[in-house]
Design a protein around this nucleic acid. Structure first.
Length: 897
RNA sequence: GGGCUUGUAGUUUAGACUGGUAGAAUACUCGCCUUGCACGCGAGGGGUCAGGGGUUCAAAUCCCCUCGAGUCCA
């Protein structure tokens, strides 16, 4: 749908869409901008242009329009007290990690808090009406702008003012009046300063008119009146109209403070502290005109560097001033902003990683580190985190709980970046020529070396324009989820017996049957869902293959013939299997909470799988688990079992459950139902869960973690067994460890033997060599070594067939002998296990004539094997031990001839 | 979920394509020289080549599996 078309339509009928009581009462005039033609409402008779094109745009910098000054914390207190005074409920912010919506990773607007997706429809659930919320929102679209433009943040506080027009709530007139009063009465802004601009908002299949309110060119808020659904050619009024007013808290603070940038007044004491530390001269006669120009120019150019260039030109700043003041300030703003976002994200359970939204967090941390490196800033990140949390907890006290966890994650991630940079440098240093596009893609895909980094390191001068096109070609294959369409129309919902008496045997009426599928009026068979595998059993004697849930209808797939519709069938659930699965399911909850308490608050369930005899739980965690971690988690889990805690199951309205227990309940993901089933193990673990559970933790008897594995960056898989399976596993493990111990002892012995052999070689070789060489002619034997010496000028031959020595000895002896007598060929044959090995050493003078390699080849062949090597040294072997003597004879004939 | 890279003394690594005695630097220990304190010379200890399996007479090297580290994409 085209936004422009809707705006044209709405602006053509201002009486219907935009004129609110306030405008009538106060005498606002509706005008059209001389520059762009957009319609706006003002009390200022001299104003001719819309806020984007007015002369007073951004003139609040250095000259705020209010007599009062409010920083970030105070601004919220003002907003909150105003709305509370006017019958609004102030509610706590929702997590920035948007766990209640599958299609969003982070919370991007305050209205998202109250949106729940049910099927393909978005419904709104408000815990109060009207309400106001200081919602931290994360947006990564304008990351390049952060720190530079003076007003872009990677996370910001959206003041959400929401109302449903009914007996409690209100519609347009009251909304705009409240916003006007907020600005004029609470913040003391002159009425003439406020401009309302006509706009529309559309998204998610619904749309409505909106009024954006500006003061001196700064958009403070946007009141959206979500009213219609459908598209422009065919729409109808929503059953549930909604006021969605979102205002930027940072901008409220900024306009009252009039600082050069919004960053100067929104981060608390940390900004000044870092500026002092760096020793930047914050001369307002430089900063105020510069940042005012930046703010004004931002809309004029697409390219940020152009905006910057133009502002520098207009304000006449020197390169020296830019390098000394502006650039370091931009860096400081970026660092503080990014850390604030990381604090919120990590506190709410997100981890920097290479997947999904976690990648944005990793990028931000890397921007922080590389900015510090580039500007040679030496900041203590822990200190920045501490000061920021100290400040933020005035508004968000919950951040205190995760203070240390945030530091831990950031320090781990910083370390990872350092090592990955070293790696990148190493890879880059190995490049011997300028890489082609193909090489760049390989470097990027396999080694994580970005072309930007290569450009920075001056390996390439420009990023080839075809790079991104080629890259995206490589990743175009898309997977589609298989969707099974079953003829389920008109079938009524299945009564779920496993939430009630949960019988193992029951009779039920067949509502529908087709192919291999049976639908009953009620069932005690658990259908696949929530990571829990389906039950086994039989329906009317026919074995069940699979059970799935389609909406509220349970479909059983069976082997063999299906019963007739209308029949009553007797059903039996495989009790043993169910018991195993049930224990494993409750164990999953127990391990999840144990892992969280052992590892840290960032641990969430990523996914889970429960079978009869084994189960696995994937949790979010930054590193692979150590043996110590595993042991602690297991011990914690078993102590929970030991405490015999009852497992309580209650049903709640979803909104109530969220408010009461928080978003920790969504461990298993979003629950697309109005009423949630809350499974709680004391107050240790509270989750929304539809699975089957034991009555008391003691029923599980024992939990044993069998294996852990890092399955992707930021996710660790824990495989475990519980109940009888755990007992069996422990027993088997003990047997294994006994046999392993034996094996290890043998290994140890072998090692000792080797050391002993080495010692023998060291001691004996010089003695043997000496006594052999002392003899000038004939045959001599020392310690099983036989030497046959010929007249000078001919080859000398020395051999051993003793098994008392190993390879180290033979090599050592051969080397020693050949060094002393360059015309000697040494040949060692010895048995090693099932095989026989040959080592031949040839002296310097003789090796050209009688190559060790050739000799070995020949001998090995006789022994039924093969071998090879260099002329001076070679080795080989075979399997025919009995032919040892033949082999020596052969060698002798080859050498002496 | 898919792909790719990678794992060798305490540390940095060579050797892998082409299977054949695991080598160097640095640190460490000892000795000599020197006695101006990041010097020179010599000797020595230190490696389950991530683990397991396979092929082979022979595997750090080739193949498979597992584990760890890293990275890109979805």
């Amino acid at each position: 749908m085209n936004k422009k078309e809707i705006l044209e339509k709405f602006s053509a009928d201002p009486q219907r869409y935009y004129n609110v009581n306030l405008f009538e009462d106060q005498g606002f005039e509706r005008k059209s901008c001389n520059e762009c033609g957009r319609f706006f409402w003002t009390l200022d008779s001299e104003r001719v242009n819309c806020p984007d094109h007015s002369d007073d745009t951004y003139s609040f910098i250095g000259d705020p329009p209010t007599s009062k000054r409010f920083d970030y914390t105070q601004s919220w207190k003002e907003v909150e007290s105003f709305f509370v005074k006017n019958n609004h409920t102030s509610i706590n912010r929702y997590p920035v990690v948007c766990r209640w919506r599958d299609d969003l990773y982070f919370t991007i607007a305050s209205i998202v808090d109250f949106q729940r997706v049910m099927g393909s429809k978005v419904v709104f659930e408000f815990p109060a009406n009207p309400l106001v919320v200081p919602q931290t929102c994360l947006r990564f679209k304008d990351l390049e702008n952060v720190g530079v433009t003076g007003r872009h943040f990677s996370s910001f506080c959206m003041i959400g003012q929401h109302s449903i027009p009914n007996e409690n709530g209100y519609w347009k007139d009251e909304c705009v009046e409240l916003d006007f009063k907020l600005l004029t009465q609470q913040f003391g802004i002159a009425k003439k300063e406020i401009t309302f601009v006509e706009d529309v908002w559309e998204g998610g299949g619904s749309f409505g008119s909106s009024l954006e309110y500006f003061v001196r060119g700064l958009e403070l808020g946007n009141a959206v009146f979500t009213e219609f659904q459908g598209d422009l050619s065919n729409y109808k009024t929503l059953d549930q109209r909604i006021i969605d007013m979102g205002a930027g808290l940072e901008r409220f603070a900024w306009i009252t403070m009039g600082t050069p940038t919004a960053y100067d007044c929104c981060f608390g004491p940390i900004t000044q502290k870092l500026i002092q530390k760096t020793g930047i001269d914050t001369d307002s006669s430089v900063l105020v005109p510069y940042f005012t120009e930046i703010a004004k120019n931002l809309e004029l150019y697409d390219d940020l560097s152009q905006v910057r260039k133009n502002a520098i030109k207009t304000t006449g700043l020197s390169d020296e001033q830019i390098n000394r003041i502006i650039t370091p300030l931009e860096g400081i703003y970026l660092i503080i902003d990014h850390i604030r976002t990381l604090i919120f994200a990590i506190s709410d359970g997100a981890l920097p990683s290479n997947v999904g939204g976690g990648y944005n967090l990793r990028i931000m941390l890397r921007r922080i580190v590389s900015t510090m490196n580039r500007l040679k800033l030496k900041f203590d990140l822990d200190e920045i985190i501490d000061i920021q949390i100290d400040y933020l907890k005035n508004t968000y006290p919950e951040l205190e709980k995760t203070r240390e966890d945030v530091k831990e994650i950031i320090s781990i991630e910083t370390g990872r970046y350092d090592s990955s940079k070293q790696r990148m440098q190493k890879i880059v240093s190995k490049l011997d020529k300028e890489p082609k596009v193909e090489d760049l893609i390989t470097l990027y895909e396999s080694d994580g070396v970005t072309p930007e980094y290569l450009k920075e390191m001056k390996v390439i001068s420009e990023i080839p324009s075809t790079f991104y096109a080629k890259l995206s070609d490589l990743h175009q294959s898309k997977k589609q989820k298989e969707q099974v369409n079953l003829p389920l129309e008109g079938v009524s919902d299945t009564e779920l017996l496993f939430y009630g008496d949960d019988p193992r045997e029951f009779d039920a009426k067949v509502l529908k049957s087709f192919e291999n599928f049976v639908i009953l009026d009620k069932t005690a068979f658990y259908a696949r869902g929530g990571g829990q595998e389906p039950d086994h059993g039989d329906i009317g004697g026919q074995e069940i293959i699979d059970i799935t849930k389609h909406g509220n209808i349970v479909v059983h797939e069976i082997k063999g013939d299906v019963p007739k519709e209308g029949d009553t069938v007797s059903c039996r659930v495989d009790a043993k299997r169910r018991e195993g699965i049930t224990k494993n399911h409750t164990s999953t909850h127990i391990i999840n909470t144990s892992a969280r308490s052992v590892l840290g608050s960032w641990v969430w369930q990523h996914s889970a799988f429960k079978e009869e005899d084994h189960a696995r739980l994937d949790i979010t965690h930054h590193s692979a688990l150590t043996n110590d971690d595993v042991k602690k988690i297991e011990d914690t889990a078993n102590s929970i079992i030991g405490k015999s805690i009852p497992v309580k199951i209650e049903n709640f309205d979803r909104g109530t459950a969220e408010q009461k227990y928080g978003f920790r309940i969504y461990q298993g993901g979003v629950v697309p139902v109005k009423s949630v089933r809350i499974v709680s193990i004391g107050d240790l673990d509270i989750e929304a869960c539809g699975g089957t559970h034991v009555v008391n933790t003691s029923d599980i008897e024992q939990i044993k973690i069998t294996k852990t594995k890092r399955i992707q960056d930021g996710v660790v898989r824990i495989e475990f067994v519980s109940g009888d399976s755990a007992k069996e596993f422990v027993k088997k493990k003990q047997q294994d460890s006994e046999s392993k111990e034996k094996e290890e002892k043998e290994k140890e012995k072998e090692k000792e033997k080797r050391i002993e052999q080495r010692q023998i070689a060291k001691e004996r070789i010089p003695v043997i060599a000496k006594s052999l060489l002392e003899c000038k002619q004939g045959t001599i034997t020392v310690d099983d070594i036989t030497m046959e010496l010929a007249d000078s000028g001919k080859a000398n031959f020395c051999y051993s067939t003793s098994d008392n020595y190993d390879d180290v000895f033979h090599i050592g002896l051969g080397e020693a002998l050949c060094k002393a007598d360059p015309k000697l060929v040494y040949c060692g044959l010895f048995e090693q296990g099932e095989k026989i090995r040959v080592i031949v050493y040839a002296g310097e003078d003789i090796s050209k004539e009688k190559s060790a390699g050739e000799i070995v080849k020949s001998i090995s062949q006789i022994l039924g094997g093969a071998g090879g090597g260099s002329p001076k040294f070679a080795q080989g072997g075979g399997i025919e031990k009995s032919r040892k003597e033949d082999a020596i004879k052969n060698a002798k004939s080859m050498i002496i001839e």
